[in-house]
Design a protein around this nucleic acid. Structure first.
Lengths: 215, 215
DNA sequence: TTCATAGTTCGATGCTAGTCGAAGTATGTG
DNA sequence: CACATACTTCGACTAGCATCGAACTATGAA
């Protein structure tokens, strides 16, 4: 079966953290060459254990669902040898990991925080194949100062899910993600560091952000 | 890993009935020669999946414990869900889905029905990381004829959640799950089919079961 | 004792499948 | 544009392992 091979076992173990990892990272993790890992990853995906997400030139792999994770957990329990510690992924620079610009929207831990809060509060809804702004969500972003009518004029997608490469969770992109970051800057919540992608929060901005998007 | 090989998978599947089988029987079940089976059985025992009991010139093999059975059940669930398991259609399959023995407790739709009813009636409580029998539940199972004091004497866990591969929901295992199935048989509610995992209900048993565990 | 059955170990064989080098595609960067 | 990076496919090599025949041990029956 699929789980038997040591390389695949390593890959699955690495993914037990719940994070999505790239093919190259998984190859290093499993101790095999990229092309070998590629072959394993395809088999695991065909076997229904993984799901894959393409983003730019990266391919992020994650366990397909909770049932797979649970079953693997049980298997790990049986196998006496426990998985070794995962090395930390993402940039060493903690500031970059905290908040940065991704194209032109907010990414990093703060981006993920915003995304999760908006989902939890019902402002963003994940419907069949697409992320949409709810009626309540429209009022919410208007209150934050976003000119929603201006956004409606362009045809570009309003909300998009973007996989965060440091947090390995989703954050918000699309027109709305872009407009929100612009609004944060206009309102003095955040400041861009020159010549870098780092976004720093002012003390007031940080407090206001946490109020609007409770973790 | 050990479970991967088809011959070994057949052996383990055969042992899911909870019965102990001899090496020769398992060879026939797996469709391999006795010497091949012997080699597999040794590996499975070394791997901690089986336990062996010598009796006369026979060697009886069984799954080592309930944890192994549960994990295998979960694995079969994944495989079945992804369609990688031989799909047997016909009455045998539906009977197996309805009620079967999982190691030594009741699984299938009826197992799930029992589990849900006991949760709904407050007989089973899901507390921090563990399933427990409530005070009311203790009275309930005593009324059904279970000798709870005898069960208390052993150290094995009383209640365990076991993921059902056909229903994809939980059913009850552990000492209590085992004792309940035994009680159903003693009371004439159910009957085991020889050489299979199917559990059939007598008409009276079915009615009594539905009264005790309303869907 | 002899015969039969249950199960094992040993050794040879053959095939599966994991592995990586080389080359190809796709995407981002300067 | 050229160049770098991420990842894939193709093909050949090879290690590992499942398989079974033959021979061995152990228990039981006559």
């Amino acid at each position: 079966m699929l789980i038997g091979d040591p390389a695949r076992a390593n890959i699955l173990t690495a993914l037990m953290s719940g994070k999505a990892l790239t093919a190259t990272e998984l190859a290093a993790e499993a101790g095999v060459s990229p092309q070998t890992a590629s072959s394993h990853l395809r088999k695991l995906e065909d076997g229904g254990l993984l799901r894959q997400r393409k983003q730019g030139r990266h391919r992020y792999f994650a366990l397909r669902d909770e049932a797979v994770a649970q079953t693997l957990e049980a298997l790990m329990g049986l196998a006496a040898h426990r998985g070794h510690l995962r090395h930390r992924t993402g940039p060493r620079d903690t500031a970059l990991r905290d908040a940065r610009v991704c194209y032109n929207h907010l990414a990093g831990d703060r981006g993920v925080q915003m995304f999760n809060a908006m989902r939890a509060q019902g402002h963003l809804c994940l419907e069949a194949g697409g992320l949409t702004l709810s009626r309540a969500g429209a009022g919410f972003v208007r209150d934050l100062g976003v000119d929603l009518e201006a956004l409606d004029r362009s045809r570009a997608p309003m909300c998009r899910e973007c996989l965060d490469w440091s947090a390995r969770m989703s954050h918000l992109s699309g027109k709305l993600g872009r407009a929100l970051l612009a609004q944060f800057c206009d309102a003095g919540w955040t400041r861009r560091q020159e010549g870098s992608r780092i976004v720093t929060f002012t003390p007031k901005g940080r407090a206001a952000f946490d109020r609007a998007f409770p973790a």
